[in-house]
Every structure is written in structure tokens, then in C-alpha cells.
Design a binder for these strands. Structure first.
Lengths: 253, 253
DNA sequence: CGAATCGTTGACGTAAGTCAATTGCGGTGG
DNA sequence: CCACCGCAATTGACTTACGTCAACGATTCG
């Protein structure tokens, strides 16, 4: 089995504990959800397609996916990355058609949640639901920060910022070791994320490499100096709304 | 009194009816909220400041405001516009500090909503609450579309797209007459919205003017050919999730 | 009427895009 | 095992869209 499909048992609880203190019962409830029947998708597969009716909330359990939107002439913008423990659109039930697609970047495993799940969580595990809302608000804040990234930052700053953000997010779910993590996406995908051409992404990565900040080699990203990288990126982790521990984590690394 | 501070009575109901069929009781409930004690702010005033605790949800009643975020070196990105009938962050209660600021662009009037309001709406006026969630999801979709805008579109496309979007949004609340509406922001603010320099905004507006698409003169925007403008912008109104009527509206103009 | 603010224009600089050739690499099959 | 393929990444030469700087109009407001 691909390493990408393995579910880490307490990954979600670990993340949510940054947002609210969870009781043993909360963790137990999370665990039951985590063990449910899951679905897998191969890389490049569209999990959700623009124009489809929503069909429920997806809880990502393993692998990377991304949300993207295409223009009529074929240009593509990647709008967000879904990492293990992420929810795709907490409120999905409300709208009638998806205005974007979601694609697997690696082999992906996820499980579906229905409106009933959230109803029952709201009444029976309010703390947990509170943490899910928090997580949702952080997702919105990330979206805003990407807007800042594309609107204001230069190529180097943009890429550096993205890498800082991914590092912190992956660290929170225990998928970053030291300064390194798996970055299973091509430079074309990176380009569609940061709004640059693929060749300029290549050049910019080279630049970052030559400054001894990071190295991306065969899908593995190594950060040599997180402090320096975040200062190049003008990275301020406040928008990730981590509790004290997490902020501290982001500061060191 | 400034024209910007006048509350249009059924503006909010008009918008929400695009999202859900409202009962007379729903409309009555909306109306009671709309008539509450309101607060005003002068142009340029920060209504919410980055770092502050949230302090409740604001329902915009009149005037324009914007959400923005600053980088350490002074660059500013405008993240969204708040128009009459918009809610600032439905879930605000959850987080502890604001990661962005909100500033009045014109004289602004708004009213505060507390968690109790939403609790009571959820139990007593579920249809209405549903419409508010819908509105919130549309706000998120707009944020994503801005990401697309900044990441993929050229200067002309970007500005054209912004104008199309504003036209549709203003039309929905009855603030667009024919092809024209008030656009009470400077070119510097436009620039910080679309991630261009102010002088390039000026040139790009000139370009659009010379193509006989739009004219912006003394805070009044006139759209001469919405079809042509949206095709220049690659504007697809799907992300605004209007009901059939609204989609049709966007198509014609 | 004058000061401040906002918009416009021109000349010039630069970051990023485009095109195209080349290299590296992992998988496949003979 | 090596030859071949296909994809991803790199590099160089050249183009272009947009930024910067600075001067100059226009409009608003006291």
C-alpha cells in the first residue's frame, strides 16, 4: 500500500487540540469518525467536480489534495491544499453546485460526513464542534493570506511564504520532521498555486536554494533556516490562529 | 446627512431572497434587526483593528467598507469589500484575535449582532439562518475568486472582473441603476485590491475606457457593455451562487 | 483663492513570461 | 542489463507586462 494512504490514528485530535481543550469523550468521538469506512482516490483524480451538487463534507485522512478553479481558456488556479485532518467545506450542504473542483495530488484517503454528524456533534460534543468551526475559520484565514500572497508578494516571497505555511500546518499534524517534509507536487502545480510560470518557479527555487534557505529534491523539502525563510517571506503565523504552543513552534522550528 | 448613511429598508431581505424563500415572519424578524440601534463611522476609520478581540458580528447597513491586511513593510492588500447587507464574519465569536482590519471607505452605518441573535435565529427562523449561511458561503467563494483573479488574470482582466462582480453584487441589493453604480474608492485603493500599482490602474482604466467598456468618473462607474466586459474579464457569475433570476440578471444587465 | 488630494502621462527600469533546447530520472520492456 | 520512453526540471536568449519616478493637470474643500 502506498505510504500516502496510511491513516495516522490521532492526527486530527492533535490538530484540534490547538483550538480547544478536548475531553476524553471528544477524542473518543473523533476516533469513531476516524475509523469509519473510507474512500480512496488515485493521484490526478477529481474528487469533486465543478458543477456537481455538493454531496457532503469530506474529512481528509491521508494524502494531499487541492481545490482548484479553471478559467474558460484553460488557466488554472490552485486555491487551497487539503492535508490530512482537513475538512472540505464545513457548510457544503447549503449550496447547490460546486463552483470549483477538488483533485487528488497523491493517493488520497478520506471519509464522508453528513449533516447528521454535525447536528449530533453540535448537541452532544459542543467543544469538538467549536474546534471544527475554529479550524474552518483558519481555512478562511489561509484563503485570505493567499490573496495577500498573490497580490503583494514577489516571486521569492510568495514561494517562501507558501513553504513556511505548509511547514507549520504539517508540523501541527506531525508530518514535519525537523525542518523537512514531503512536498508531493510538481513545479507546474506549484506555479498554478503561486500564480507564476513553471520556469520562474524553477528559477525561484534555485534562488532560495542558493541562499541556503531551502532545498526541494525529489518531493522532499528541507528547510535549512526557518527564521531566515520567514523573514524573506514576511511570514506572520498569526493568521493560522494556533494556541501559544503553536505560535512558539512557528517561531522556532 | 451623507447619502452614504441612509439605510434602505428592505435591502437585506431583497438579497437573502436570492438564497432562500423567506416567510413574512422571516422578513419581519429581519426588519426588527435592521431597525436596531446602529453605529456610524467616518471614512478612513478603522472599524476593526488587526490584533483586537473580535467583539461580535457587524451587519453593514449603509456605505462601503473593506477588509485589509498589511505586511510588515507597509504593503497593503484589500481582501474584500463590505457592501450594505453584508455580514462581517458570521463565526467571529470563535477566534480570539482578528488577523486583519476593517476600514470604512465612505461614511458607514452598521449594527452589531451577538451570539444570542444567531442562536435565536437558528431555533426560531431556520430558513433565515439558512440564507445567512448561504450568504457566508458566497463570501467565501468571492474570496476564492479573488485568489483566481490575482493569480491568473492580467491587469485588464482583473479590473474588468472586479467591476463585473461589484456590478452584480450591487444590483442584487438594488444599488445599481442601469449599467451604473457609485464606486466610492480611489485608484490607490483599487490598486491595493487588484495587486497593481496605482499608475497601472490608471492606465488600465484608460484602456477599458478607450475600448468603450466602462467609464469611471468622479466616483461613478458606468458600464457600457456588460457582455463585452465580462468576456474580457472571463467573468463567470456561477461563484456568486445566485438563484436563476440572479444568474439571468448577471447575463443581461 | 490656495492647498491638498487624486488622477494622468511620459520615460525608463525590472521582474516575470515565453520559447525552445537540454538534462536528469524512473519506469518499461526487450 | 541496457535502450528506450516520457515526464519533470533546468537553463539561456529574448520579450513583455507592469512598476517606478517625476512632472503635470484636475478636482475638491476650506
Amino acid at each position: 500500500m502506498s505510504k500516502w494512504l496510511e491513516r495516522q490514528p490521532d492526527l486530527l485530535a492533535r490538530k484540534l487540540e490547538h483550538f480547544a481543550r478536548l475531553s476524553p469523550e471528544d477524542i473518543e468521538a473523533l476516533d469513531r469518525i476516524w475509523r469509519r469506512k473510507s474512500v480512496t482516490a488515485p493521484p490526478q483524480d477529481d474528487i469533486v467536480r465543478q458543477g456537481d451538487p455538493p454531496g457532503g463534507v469530506r474529512l481528509m485522512q491521508a494524502g494531499w489534495a487541492c481545490r482548484y478553479r479553471m478559467l474558460a481558456d484553460g488557466r488554472r488556479q490552485i486555491l487551497s491544499f487539503f492535508l490530512p485532518g482537513d475538512l472540505c467545506d464545513l457548510n457544503n450542504f447549503v449550496l447547490r453546485r460546486m463552483d470549483h473542483s477538488v483533485m487528488a495530488l497523491t493517493p488520497v484517503r478520506y471519509t464522508m460526513l453528513g449533516a447528521e454528524d454535525f447536528d449530533s456533534l453540535t448537541t452532544r460534543r459542543p467543544r469538538l464542534m467549536h474546534a471544527l468551526w475554529w479550524d474552518n475559520l483558519v481555512a478562511m484565514a489561509i484563503q485570505r493570506e493567499w490573496t495577500v500572497n498573490l497580490g503583494q508578494r514577489s516571486a521569492v516571497e510568495r514561494l517562501a511564504h507558501l513553504l513556511c505555511e505548509l511547514y507549520v500546518r504539517l508540523h501541527v499534524i506531525g508530518l514535519a520532521n525537523g525542518g523537512a517534509f514531503d512536498l508531493p507536487i510538481t513545479q507546474v502545480e506549484l506555479a498554478d498555486t503561486v500564480g507564476l510560470s513553471p520556469v520562474h518557479v524553477s528559477r525561484t527555487l534555485k534562488d532560495l536554494r542558493e541562499r541556503n534557505l531551502v532545498q526541494l529534491h525529489r518531493g522532499k523539502l528541507e528547510i535549512f533556516d526557518f527564521q531566515a525563510l520567514s523573514s524573506v517571506a514576511l511570514f506572520r503565523p498569526d493568521y493560522l490562529h494556533l494556541a501559544a504552543e503553536g505560535a512558539h513552534l512557528a517561531a522556532n522550528a
